[in-house]
Design a protein around this nucleic acid. Structure first.
Length: 132
DNA sequence: ATTCTCACA
DNA sequence: TGTGAGAA
């Protein structure tokens, strides 16, 4: 589910294709870029190269505009989306520990406590289930 | 043939 | 936002 995201960010479409895909004029597309609504990459010849995500973005801009929203409003919407996105990626969503993580944490624990003895370091259902 | 930047009768 | 000029 990650390989697919990478492909969507590949900038392989020239502005001419973006125009046909979005039914926007080159003038409009460049203007939206000036307004910070899209950030297409540039190739060796300084030509804008759009990714599928850029195309989706242009389509969204078109919809917002048709619904009466102004450029500043759209820019704010995108900023909000980015803010929420970063918030959910860091603090929240704590990935569950895998087996390697558990082994590492256990090893570090043992290193500083010096061993398994002591009721405080007994882990219920782990060391007792399969005695050496 | 395409796209880029800049400027405006 | 459209359009045309001059360059790449």
């Amino acid at each position: 589910m990650k390989e697919k995201e990478l492909r969507r960010t590949l900038a392989v479409l020239p502005i001419g294709t973006a125009m046909k895909l979005t039914d926007l004029s080159a003038r409009q597309i460049r203007y939206y870029e000036d307004q910070g609504l899209i950030h297409p990459q540039r190739n060796e010849g300084n030509q804008r190269m759009f990714s599928l995500n850029d195309i989706d973005r242009l389509l969204e801009i078109k919809d917002y505009l048709s619904e009466g929203m102004n450029i500043a409003g759209i820019r704010y919407e995108f900023e909000e989306k980015k803010r929420k996105s970063k918030l959910s990626n860091q603090q929240n969503h704590v990935q569950p520990l895998n087996d390697d993580d558990v082994r590492r944490i256990l090893r570090e624990e043992l290193m500083q406590t010096g061993g398994l003895e002591g009721p405080d370091h007994q882990i219920p259902g782990f060391f007792h289930k399969k005695p050496l």
